[in-house]
Amino acid sequence: MTTIASGAPLLQVDALNVAYGKIEAVTGVNLKVGEGQIVTVIGPNGAGKTTLLSAIMGLLPATGAIGFAGAALNGTPIKDRIGQGLALVPETRALFSSMSVENNLELGAFRFHHRPARERQATMAEMYTLFPRLKERRTQRASTLSGGERQMLALARALMGKPRLLMLDEPSLGLAPLIVREVFRIISALRDSGVSILLVEQNARAALKVADYAYVLELGRVAAEGPAAELATDPRVIAAYLGMNSKHQERLAQ
């Protein structure tokens, strides 16, 4: 892997456009994620957040530049993006529902399929330490897990591939508050262990609390950005995500 000059971002997205047919879902988005950072993208339903992640992952064709660890990703197949250390946990989790927890995890390390199996076993042992609940359930089918356990499995499966940048799409979706807290605790623990994270969330307050930097996406464009702590106190963002001020949309659109 190429070493990059310190300070250069791990992920750099410039002027990204994504269109479904004639409808543009993401327009002119610029975004950076530095090494060891948590960067969050917040915004309402339909703002283009999931589209943005899909384009970075290579699931959707996009125009504009995507640079990762100093190399251009445009046109790179998904498999090779994963090989370079990108990982995405989609909103649906995309677990292999009829397969066991252990098989799900093993497949998470598929990108190391040329390496000896015991390396995968070692990573799996680490995951079981991080998520003891999964160890208890390792022979169960993924479809039998509760919502929180599924999110843990999706996270653990992504980590099995030892990503440099982990992209999470709505990790708190449909989870009880206690579990949401747990998920966010794990996300900040991951950052501390050196994984950079791009976090898409509707749960704005939680996301802003854990993130270093944040972007607000509205109607496919970046409507605001800044250090997460600043955005959290920005009256426009408070208005938007407390939803008490009907004027916020106009102001954000300016």
């Binding site: 699931l59 529902s97 397969m99 098989n103």
Partner: peptide
């Protein structure tokens, strides 16, 4: 077998398999 499981995974969830680098 890991490759056999990868095939099953593709059948169960194509997106999931793709995100694991199973082309």
């Amino acid at each position: 077998n890991l490759y056999g499981k990868a095939l099953r995974a593709t059948a169960v969830d194509r997106l999931g398999a793709q995100l694991m680098g199973i082309s």
